[in-house]
Design a protein around this nucleic acid. Structure first.
Lengths: 170, 170
DNA sequence: CAAAATCATAGGTCTGCACCCACTATAGGG
DNA sequence: CCCTATAGTGGGTGCAGACCTATGATTTTG
């Protein structure tokens, strides 16, 4: 079970870039060549850092998403938040409940359809969202540190286009 | 597991996101303005799609990483794989064990230090890695569909620089 | 009106990831 | 030799995310 493949030469890395820190060993080039891999890694770094900052406030990423949706598009019925954000209805109920308890949103039964709960962001919610946005920008600055302003704009534009076409996102 | 969308298998016959521009509602601009958010979302999409393809073969992302490390840098003591990939030693033992069982790697005790297990990729392992690489490229093609070749190269270069400076990666 | 559909919610499952501890085998210094 | 450190392993824990089901309240529809 060892058909030695002579041709499967590893793309031996000439050498770890002098500037590149590699105290623990370099990442395999086979992986680094994959945009998939880089996207996954950098995305995970961004997410986990932001999540960690939110966690310090007892919040999760969904909380921020809900506040953003309410601030950007105005009051939603809970079911519309579910549709817009693509989250499970049951999970949305929990998020909304927590946000309402903390005073960041208000919930009221829709008079027209008493099954529906209309969710509205409060002043406190808007203020919080502004802070969370600042946190996100701080993370962004941290993660994108090696890029110039112009490069960051290019990256953002490319990612926006990729994101726009992702199934499940629209 | 395709948490984002239901059928991620086939490239949508007609259009990616069915005609409707916002069948579910638009994403809040407050989020879309954050590169952090785009990075996280696209990264997650890439990751989950690749993971799903690997899962069909009974593999996980770590399996691919280990094979890549072995193919790129030659045989490793298990402990060196742990250092290079930044995974927990206990988890690495499990991954290596599974790979060995499937015949993708061989393990032998190091004669010099009989505590160490030297891990070597087999021919089958290299062949598998080539296939996994092809899968990753397919996912990449899927995710980066909206970008031209030149744009993909720019994106890759920017991501590579960002990734190189991420703490925890070195 | 009765039946079916819809909304919100409580509760639970499942999966993957990261991490931790206890234990064995081996190495190496004093 | 004894003692400490290291390598690998097995068997866990805890957490977060997505998902699923049942139920009560309400609206819509046949």
């Amino acid at each position: 079970m060892a058909p030695e493949e002579p041709g499967s030469t590893a793309p031996a890395p000439a050498g770890p870039s002098p500037a590149g820190p590699s105290p623990a060993g370099a990442t395999p080039p086979t992986l680094l060549d994959l945009s998939t891999y880089l996207l996954s890694r950098t995305g995970k770094a961004a997410r986990s850092r932001l999540a960690e900052r939110l966690a310090r406030r007892g919040l999760r990423l969904w909380d921020m998403a809900v506040l953003a949706a309410l601030a950007d598009f105005g009051p939603h019925a809970q079911r519309d938040l579910v549709r817009r954000l693509g989250v499970d209805a049951s999970d949305m109920a929990k998020v909304a409940d927590q946000l309402a308890l903390a005073g960041y949103v208000e919930r009221a039964r829709d008079a027209a359809d008493r099954r529906r709960l209309s969710v509205t962001v409060t002043g406190a919610g808007r203020a919080l969202l502004a802070e969370l946005r600042a946190e996100a920008l701080a993370v962004q600055d941290e993660v994108l540190a090696p890029l110039s302003g112009a490069e960051r704009r290019v990256l953002h534009e490319l990612l926006a286009r990729v994101h726009a076409e992702l199934p499940g996102t629209p």
